[in-house]
Design a protein around this nucleic acid. Structure first.
Length: 844
RNA sequence: GCGGCGGUGGCGGAACGGUAGACGCGGGGCCCUCAAAAGGCCCUGUCCGGAAGGGCGUGUGGGUUCGAUUCCCACCCGCCGCACCA
């Protein structure tokens, strides 16, 4: 017989053409009949994070879609109707920067990239429902992004206020944080970046902090991702305390609230610090001898790069404002300072400083020679509370941030454990109207406006008479105009499109100007999973019936680098849209899987390192099946994996072997035969191979549920190794069954070769076959190798019958030759029997 | 600093508290071949031994257990996230 060779370059396009021709992976939104056995939901929504189309897909894309496709195929063959769509997160800076450099319009270069991604995904054989494909830069998509924005605007969840943004004085443009390098310079021109106050759009995600935190308990996400989100939200319990300033005008005192997690230390507050960004700073300093110094300090602090300013090791700096505030608990006048260690974004932008019990305040007090007053006495630190005056209370070790007993405070609280004092002092503040219990979050509102061209236009108009006016829904989308020059000139490039900017007010008909900022691309990707459910709907962003079929996403898959931003924003959108009556669920992604990075020689792939492995070149050499199976075989998918060309060859050999065995076996059988029945009472090699096949079914099924694809593929390798070894010792139908089984369970990982092998053997389409079931009887053995231990060490192995009673197993073990040698007259004090596994004799 | 994850052969990695190292790579030997490629078979943690067999081995030190890579405590190292968050 002619030598047949595994040729992925022939096999793969052939099956891809069939799947494309028959639109095999498309699904409808028709309601599924309700299922009577109640076993499983009939619909399953498997989604990988949509790609940002730039150049060619990289190896990370190959990994995420290989993982997702395996799950999608598995669910299909378990009987589910699976939604597995694809789209492109197509707005963004790189396309725009490319345009600035080359003059090629972002739309043109983006479309090129999208085409290349489409080609690759088809070439990889990913089972995508192409009928639902879209790119977020298409007006038919961003029309609904704009609609959502307006919904949020009407609900008060989108608002405008002044905010500090990064500004490059040379390029005359606002910069995204990512465009500022580590030295605080513009990544394009190298000029020192400044901070500028500009009107910006925000989304009120902070309103959802509590729910975003609480609902993490309702979803099946990796614990570390939940932890990152919890940390990002950063919930702290404490109190808001009011410090009154009467210095400016005693008849009109100003109240400055501060947030503190330690109201128990209030009596130790010896000064008061405000952030340089605090709007009252200059007003407070005005007319004091320090006015100029304060002015200089604020200017300097505001222009300092975040990385530098945020460095906790930096010595504390600041300037006295020359004013005082009143400590509400004891009426003391304490001096006010401005210092850059206080952040405007957190809490109220002002703090009470308790140097004795806070490291930062302590450092500042040291630098400025301010009083330090201990108000917490450590436990077990001898002596009575009264005998502890002076700076450190005679105990030393300041600042002290631990728990203890209150001292130097007030007779009502002195002697109280500080944990208890927190409640007592807050209650007192509350009664006096000087404060109240409060919860504070680290999470800040989401700044969504970008002074950029290549993004979704914000659908707002400014009318001279009516002010800010939302674009009426029937006028959506506000389309991005074609422009000539993408170079920023101190405002969004859109501002130069005068014809587009100038329009009429829908309310009064008078002249109006369009908002020229565009939206952060994270807005686009915060709802795309909803659009897939009803991607061709021109009347609405989605129909409720379509959503009911699919949402929430059953399994979401993507890189851990999106653990915070994208996943938080998508959750926020879902909750906000649910509150507005557009959705009837609270969480978009029921289960999440985060896959690890693919590295080369232990390092992240990058052009500058020259270690980039391109999927296209791999596939050209060994085919898509090998590339996909290898990337899943190399290790657990949630871990980082190092690409090895030798490892790829190993997987290629395995697929090659599988295919050749199937081809030879099919040739011998003459014609494909759908009948896969096996000898009725198999013995010897037949039994061994059939058992192996059923073991493999069981192993792969479990591994697919656990996402341990590496061991699933290893199990199929074992089955193929055994099939090869036993090929001449078993009945032809046994071998056929073993190989068809291997092809069947390998299909989710290497679809083309599996489909081809299955077809050669049976003439059937493997993806139309139900997932195989392992037969219980084939998983059991009537004989097994009993491990014989003496004092926990393996000394022998003997054959035991599966139905042997414990006492029989003990006998077998005691009789094993090498066990006897180790027992040798010693006393057996205990015998542990684990049926099916081992016997352990404890001797003395 | 806080939080999370992880440390197993030459390498990637397997092991419901029960035979440590499945599977693959790499390495060695052999078969096929005029030769090569491709393929096939065998060996491959380490030390002692001819072999049988035995000692030692999952970052370090303790503990629980008949038995620990697995559970508990302390520590060391590495990676990731957050970081002057009041």
């Amino acid at each position: 017989m002619a030598e047949r060779r595994y040729d992925p370059q022939e096999i793969e396009p052939r099956w891809q053409a069939l799947w494309a021709r028959e639109r095999t992976w498309e699904v409808s939104n028709e309601p599924t009949e309700s299922r009577t056995d109640g076993l499983r939901a009939l619909n399953s929504y498997i989604l990988e994070m949509l790609p940002y189309p730039s150049g060619e897909p990289h190896i990370g894309h190959l990994k995420v879609y290989s993982v997702g496709d395996a799950i999608a195929h598995f669910h299909r063959r378990l009987g589910a109707r699976v939604l597995h769509p694809m789209g492109y997160d197509a707005f963004g800076l790189p396309a725009e920067n490319h345009a600035i450099k080359t003059g090629v319009q972002p739309r043109v270069s983006t479309d090129e990239s999208i085409e290349s991604f489409q080609r690759q995904f088809r070439r990889w054989g990913i089972s995508i429902d192409w009928s639902r494909e879209f790119a977020t830069c298409e007006p038919s998509y961003y029309r609904w992004t704009q609609w959502i924005f307006l919904e949020l605007f009407r609900a008060g969840l989108a608002y405008r206020r002044e905010a500090a943004v990064k500004w490059c004085p040379k390029d005359q443009t606002v910069l995204a944080n990512e465009q500022v390098d580590a030295d605080g310079c513009c990544e394009r021109c190298g000029a020192l970046v400044e901070v500028k106050q500009l009107e910006q759009w925000f989304l009120r995600i902070t309103d959802y902090a509590e729910r975003l935190l609480g609902d993490l308990d309702t979803i099946e996400w990796p614990e570390h991702v939940k932890t990152m989100q919890r940390n990002w939200i950063g919930r702290s319990e404490g109190a808001e305390v009011i410090f009154r300033c009467e210095d400016l005008d005693p008849t009109h005192p100003v109240d400055y609230p501060v947030f503190t997690t330690r109201p128990d230390t209030l009596f130790g507050a010896t000064f008061f610090v405000m952030a340089p960004e605090h709007p009252d700073i200059m007003r407070l300093a005005e007319g004091t001898p320090n006015e100029q110094a304060v002015h200089d300090y604020v200017n300097h602090a505001l222009n300092e790069p975040n990385e530098e300013r945020g460095n906790a090791d930096k010595p504390k700096t600041g300037v006295a404002l020359g004013r005082t505030v009143t400590n509400p608990v004891n009426g003391e006048q304490i001096p006010m300072y401005v210092a850059d260690y206080v952040l405007m974004e957190y809490g109220t932008g002002a703090i009470m400083a308790v140097p004795a019990h806070d490291e930062r305040d302590y450092e500042f007090a040291r630098a400025f020679d301010l009083p330090v007053r201990r108000v917490i006495f450590p436990p077990n630190a001898h002596d009575s509370v009264e005998a502890a005056p002076g700076e450190d209370g005679g105990v030393g070790g300041l600042p002290y941030v631990g728990d203890g007993t209150l001292v130097n405070s007030h007779p009502d609280f002195d002697g109280m454990p500080n944990r208890e004092a927190i409640g007592a002092i807050v209650a007192w503040l509350d009664r006096e109207g000087k404060g109240h219990a409060s919860v504070n979050y680290r999470l800040r509102d989401w700044l969504v406006s970008r002074q950029r061209y290549w993004g979704t236009p914000i659908p707002i108009l400014y009318c001279e008479r009516c002010g800010m006016v939302p674009v009426p829904e029937e006028q959506l989308p506000v389309e991005l105009p074609e422009i000539e020059d993408y170079t920023p000139k101190g405002r969004s490039p859109l501002a130069a499109a005068e014809l587009w900017v100038n329009t009429t007010c829908p309310q009064c008909g008078g002249p109006a100007r369009r908002e020229t900022d565009t939206m952060d691309t994270f807005v686009d990707s915060s709802w795309y999973f909803l659009r897939y459910c009803d991607a061709r709907n021109e009347q609405a962003a989605w129909g409720p019936a379509a959503l009911r079929q699919w949402m929430p996403v059953d399994q979401y898959i993507g890189g851990v680098e999106h653990a915070i931003l994208h996943l938080m924003y998508a959750r926020f959108f879902t909750k906000a849209l649910a509150d507005l009556g557009h959705l009837d669920f609270q969480e978009p992604f029921q289960a999440l899987f985060t896959q690890g990075m693919v590295t080369k020689d232990g390092a992240k792939m990058s052009k500058s390192r020259g270690n980039v492995v391109s999927p296209a070149s791999i596939i050209e050499r060994v085919g898509a099946d090998t590339a996909r199976a290898y990337i899943l075989f190399v290790g657990p998918p949630e871990q980082d994996a190092d690409w090895s060309d030798e490892g790829v060859e190993g997987v290629h050999r395995f697929l090659s072997r599988l295919w050749r065995l199937a081809a030879d076996t099919a040739d011998q059988a003459g014609a494909p035969n759908a009948d896969l029945s096996v000898p009725s009472a198999p013995q010897g090699a037949d039994l061994e191979l059939l058992r192996k096949a059923h073991w493999a079914i069981d192993k792969v099924s479990g591994d697919l549920r656990r996402f341990t694809f590496n061991t699933a593929i290893a199990a199929v390798m074992e089955l193929i190794n055994d099939s090869s070894r036993l090929r001449d010792a078993v009945a032809p139908e046994t071998l056929r069954f073993a190989l068809a089984t291997a092809a069947s369970v390998l299909f989710p990982f290497a679809p083309h070769v599996s489909a081809d092998a299955y077809d050669m053997l049976t003439g059937e389409r493997v993806w139309e076959q139900p997932w195989p079931q392992a037969e219980e009887s084939m998983l059991e053995r009537d004989q097994y190798e009993l491990v014989c231990q003496v004092n926990g060490k393996v000394r022998d192995r003997v054959q035991a019958s599966s139905d042997a009673a414990p006492h029989e197993l003990k006998e077998l073990c005691r009789a094993a030759p090498n066990v006897m040698a180790h027992v040798d007259g010693k006393e057996i004090v205990k015998e542990i029997v684990v049926p099916g596994k081992l016997v352990n004799l404890v001797v003395r």
